[in-house]
Amino acid sequence: MGLATIEGQTHELPSKDGYFGEYGGQQLPPQLVEIMNEISESYEKLIRTDAFQIELDSLNKDFIGRPSPIFYARRLTEKIGGARIFLKREDLNHTGAHKINHCLGEALLAKHMGKTKVLAETGAGQHGVALATACALIGIECEIHMGQVDVEKEAPNVTKMRILGCKLITVTRGTRTLKDAVDSVFEEYLKDPVNYFYAIGSVIFKASWDLEGGALPDAIVACGGGGCNARGIFTAFLEDPEVQLIGVEPAGRGLETSDHAATMTLGVKGSIHGMNCYNLQDETGEPLPVYSIASGLDYPGVGPQHCLLKDIGRTKYVAVTDQECLDAFMQLSRVEGIIPALESAHAVAYATKLAVEIGPGKTILVNLSGRGDKDADFVANRLQL
């Protein structure tokens, strides 16, 4: 994250203890402290070697297909009116989302360290597919834990993971969604943390903007669940205060109901999965069941960087409903010929409202974090197409 100003003082973030202000940290079992330190040290050494950088840069270009382009959604802009809407086409990456950006690096790190298996959780399946892809390419065993609800909902990604050779564990406890998948895979990781590598989260993103002689966009819009894709694209513009940064959360069936996952909008300070962050919790501090039509967003916590950015006023967080998400999904599909992931459709939904609000002459850049192949059958059944 680099430098940030908190209460008038400049800080290097994250701190050496892994904190972003009061958020983050490592609340680890004692047996993992040394192992986590070893991973950090190996990472710091590896990324400084020319051989690793050359290999990763080559794979980014020739395997993933980076850099992903920025596309002017002309017909959508004309239909909506107001500000021009641009899309950062992360959906065009190999595997169909931003997730491959970090999975490739983590698989390389795991193999470099001599690990025998890479483990991860997945919600919508994009992280699972990306990691299974990277492990197949690198030649290392892969195991993915996925909630039963998501397994049934995201059948195309489940099939892809199995084709790619990963071991898929269906999690049937609790809400049978992302939070429970995280609990399950962490328990598996604790069985042999010396030889296993747990690959969680993704915030790697490179943004380039070349418009009208370098003029910056007026707003960046990205969906937020755990917050990885939003955190990635926000990074490139943190030091440009004229650019508004907006994270879009799932309001689900409505913020007045319990069927949402609007962590930043309605959450409180607490801890989940070993870190301090805003989260949705009950009176005893336990995570609440959450809901979103988008499996990748139904998580009761959020990345610690987002929490700090909210507190210092650098970012804004809003929420859109399932219906608004579905409307945006269909509109982008039929107006621009781009089928977005339901997660990304949350960002598109808010961007279309913002375009009218800020008016002509302004520009909005939406992080289209993934494509909707995985969601097409679900949406078709939902809308009876």
Results as ranks from 00 to 15, higher is better:
L3N: 05
I6V: 14
G8Y: 04
E12H: 09
G18C: 06
Y19H: 11
F20T: 04
E22W: 01
Y23Q: 05
L28R: 06
P30V: 14
I35T: 09
S40W: 10
S40R: 14
Y43C: 09
D50H: 08
D50C: 03
D50K: 15
A51Q: 11
L56H: 08
D57K: 15
Y72I: 01
R75Q: 14
L76T: 07
E78C: 01
K79L: 13
G81E: 12
A83G: 10
H94D: 03
H94T: 11
L104V: 07
G105E: 12
E106K: 10
G123V: 12
A124R: 01
A124L: 05
Q126V: 07
V129I: 05
L131F: 07
I140P: 07
E141Y: 06
D150T: 02
A155L: 14
M161E: 08
M161S: 07
T177E: 12
D180P: 07
A181E: 10
D192P: 03
G201S: 13
V203R: 08
V203F: 06
W209D: 00
G214R: 08
D218Q: 12
D218F: 13
A219K: 05
I220P: 01
C228F: 07
C228N: 03
R231S: 15
A236D: 10
F237Q: 05
Q244V: 10
G247C: 11
G247F: 11
L255T: 06
H260G: 04
H260Q: 05
A262G: 08
T263N: 06
V268W: 00
V268L: 00
H273F: 15
G274S: 10
Q281P: 02
L288R: 14
D298W: 13
P304Q: 10
K310C: 01
I312C: 10
G313A: 09
R314S: 09
V320K: 01
C325F: 10
D327A: 10
Q331F: 03
R334T: 06
R334W: 02
P340F: 12
E343T: 04
S344P: 00
A345K: 05
H346W: 04
A349K: 07
T352G: 00
K353V: 03
L354N: 01
A355Q: 12
V356C: 00
L365I: 05
S369W: 12
S369N: 10
K374C: 09
A376C: 01
A376N: 00
A376D: 00
N381F: 02
